[in-house]
Nucleic acid binder design. Sequence first.
DNA 1: CTGAAAGCGCTTACAG
DNA 2: CTGAAAGCGCTTACAG
Lengths: 352, 352
Amino acid sequence: MEKKTPDNKRKTVLTTSRNSRKKRSTSYDVSRMAGVSQSAVSRCFKPGGSVSAKTRAKVEAAAKKLGYQPNAIARGLITRRSNIVAVIITELTNLNYPEVLSQLNKILGQKGIHILLFTFGSKENIDNVLDQVWQYQVDGIIAATQFTDKQIKACFERGTPLVFYNSVYADSSINSVCCDHEEGERQLVESLLKDKRKSFVVMSGPKESAVSTARTRGAINTLNEGDVSVLQLSGDYSYQSARELIREMFENKTFEPDAIVCANDTMAIGCIDALRHEYNMKVPEQVAVVGFDGVSQARWASYEVTTVVQPVEHMVEAAVNMLIERIENPESPAEKRLFAGKLIAGRSALLN
Amino acid sequence: MEKKTPDNKRKTVLTTSRNSRKKRSTSYDVSRMAGVSQSAVSRCFKPGGSVSAKTRAKVEAAAKKLGYQPNAIARGLITRRSNIVAVIITELTNLNYPEVLSQLNKILGQKGIHILLFTFGSKENIDNVLDQVWQYQVDGIIAATQFTDKQIKACFERGTPLVFYNSVYADSSINSVCCDHEEGERQLVESLLKDKRKSFVVMSGPKESAVSTARTRGAINTLNEGDVSVLQLSGDYSYQSARELIREMFENKTFEPDAIVCANDTMAIGCIDALRHEYNMKVPEQVAVVGFDGVSQARWASYEVTTVVQPVEHMVEAAVNMLIERIENPESPAEKRLFAGKLIAGRSALLN
DNA sequence: CTGAAAGCGCTTACAG
DNA sequence: CTGAAAGCGCTTACAG
């Protein structure tokens, strides 16, 4: 009631809520209290703005008293820089992503950039996500998911810088940071070949995942160079899918592997559990199992998965730097950065 | 070069970048092409805006041709509704959070609300995060972390609705959604007591975590009702910390537990691995181990942790609904919602 | 260094 | 239903 309501027609729900919401103070409020112009206030909050020490002192005192913070939304409207980046990421249940996301937040935060987060299951439509992204005028996009050509083109047309994380496209005008999945897998498989393994199962992740495809390709190509038998199975990156594939294989009794190459650590863990706990087999003596990613769970004593660790910190930092470079200088040439993974010999496979 | 640059003084880096950035079309561009007023365009994009079918058709055609999307930033400036909610979350490595975050995104997304994500390690300052939050004029905050009274007061003063997730405060004017950690722990411990366990280790998480404190309190209070010996140890929710605590305990040979009550599943898994792989002990025969959370890893065959599952989906949905209710109606009374967890008997403890 | 003024792209009473 | 106009809270040439 103590509020001034000059306009007593304000009665809609929206207005009610607007009124009862405390009004935040603006640069005008500060300028009035400090006895300076509104422009002066604005300059005080702009790094490198030219203001005298005296003016700055007055403004800072007033701002503090009023609890003033510049409105980043209004600023973004006029500067066309929101300092917000969209992070689009599938499968948050993928054990690798929390680390990626956490690292992204850390590095972007250091640069004063914020994350508008979009995650989604396979069901949802990336087009919808992109619509949201345009509306929020983000400065750029980091995408850890697969886009269609059309979606990529839309980003170009709108001039929104785009960097893919672990998702590669042949088109050289597309920016990406990627782990060398194919080469990493080759190293794993070569070690298994040296260890005289003869019957291989290669267990892929989801069909639509380019990462899984690259890993599988690395495995198959390397195996084709050796004199071994190979069975390809297709899962979905999950622990459950790996267990089920093992179960099916043994029930059909069609194949007796002595090595299993999994598309990620989670599936490797699923295989190890199925082999040991359902079929009473020795890992790695009877069957060697290898994964990929280097998630923390892979190091747990019950598994100690032999795997390739992605250099997540370096990759994320590279992605962020690439994106910022392209936000600040849209003419930067496109670039693909490929990082080597590091093979870690655990106890799920005998490697010398 | 084909661009019109009426003002040839534009030469700063910022301006360069602005120019080379494709200009997105605005409601004015659409109105010009459609031959209607800009207000008409605006109304077409407002749900329930009153426009004739004819006008709407013209506007939609023009908008489509221009690839127009309303600028949510400009809209937010005038409506004072950004449709952005800040999600503030510690310890993304905590295995429970990916699920929470993914669920948050799903439910908020369904309501047309976006997430500005803030994660941080223990080092960083929540005050800094809150400064960012104010600047971005978020509609509300979901905090899965501990605030100081002063920080909570700041939210009140600015009129920013705030809902805590798994973080409780005595003050009844604070909104929160929480799992009943104390009662869940009581149930776990009672089962262990029924199972005739006599020597208990209670392994806490980080000192600053209210959740860990509640769980530990539930355990200790229940144990005090029985005739058993109790050793309290303090870790940090991590697998490593649990293994180290076990190691220290056995090296000091001060205590021989037959039951270990862990602050979360990850620590329970660490205990199981340490007991089995370092000390060659049988779990659950010699030592029973229980956790808390119900993360997917707890169900892995190597562990099958007896635990209490948090009803994450319900909790997140409750938090989102509470927040939206308070955004739309700031006068809503404060509320605390407490959800029961569900005890799942795994094979890490013998429960009947 | 400083202030007055224009303008970012919208929404929304208001008057027709 | 429609359009002209004011205004959200800023930044930034411009002129002093």
